[in-house]
Design a protein around this nucleic acid. Structure first.
Length: 205
DNA sequence: GAGTTGATCACT
DNA sequence: GTGATCAACTCT
């Protein structure tokens, strides 16, 4: 599959701006030797060191968070609850440690691959099982710790504009709400830094 | 409500 | 170096 990848400058903007702009764009993967992916319908933004909910809170710089301090447009992948992976994109101006978590996709291609990656015997009747939720979509796209640090402008993992997605966002609109499962972050948990394609059935619960 | 494991941190 | 704590989730 020939893919016109996105320019790095797309990611080199204010984190909230990128988090919103990603809604309706395509996320694709060749990590399983056959292309699969879908349209991004849900994101969460972690703005930087001041954000109590961020792994980079208080400028915490460790082996795990290292890629957050590097160039924009790279994958930040971490394991959570001992068994799931979350896929993020490093974004922002300069090298502030900010990222956008991709929380849900509307699956559009390579459905068989994604079903297999998810451990399902066939493509499920309810496609929400494939990519609705950060852990689910990472598994569906074959993303694990090995994908950490991949350059999304070159690697077999890409983001690109989608005319269909752009239209969906224009017609249905984008909603901002509170981020999920970050109650430990106090006031920061209440900021409306989660973006969803309004009314989309593939948005996670 | 349980599962599961690595990162992080507060200690020696 | 060692041990305790717990997490940006999923499935039953």
């Amino acid at each position: 599959m020939s893919v016109a990848r996105i320019r790095r400058s797309f990611f080199e903007r204010a984190p909230l701006e990128v988090g919103k702009a990603l809604i309706g764009m395509e996320l694709g993967s060749d990590l399983s030797n056959s292309a699969c992916g879908g349209l991004i319908v849900e994101t969460e933004v972690y703005v930087g060191p001041e954000d109590r909910a961020s792994h980079a809170w208080n400028a915490r710089r460790t082996a795990r968070t290292e890629v957050l301090f590097g160039p924009r447009g790279y994958a930040y992948v971490f394991q959570i609850y001992g068994m799931h992976y979350c896929f993020n994109i490093v974004v922002g101006a300069g090298r502030v440690p900010a990222a956008v978590l991709i929380r849900a996709l509307r699956p559009t291609f390579g459905l068989e691959i994604m079903a297999k990656n998810r451990g399902l015997s066939s493509v499920p009747a309810n496609l929400r099982q494939l990519t609705s939720g950060p852990g689910r979509l990472a598994q569906a796209l074959g993303i694990d710790r090995q994908a950490n640090g991949l350059d999304l402008c070159q690697a077999p993992l890409w983001v690109r504009r989608s005319p269909v997605g752009r239209r969906l966002a224009a017609v249905h609109g984008i909603r901002a709400g509170a981020r999920i499962n970050v109650d430990y972050a106090g006031d920061w948990a209440r900021r409306n830094w989660r973006f969803t394609l309004s009314e989309d059935r593939f948005v996670s619960v």
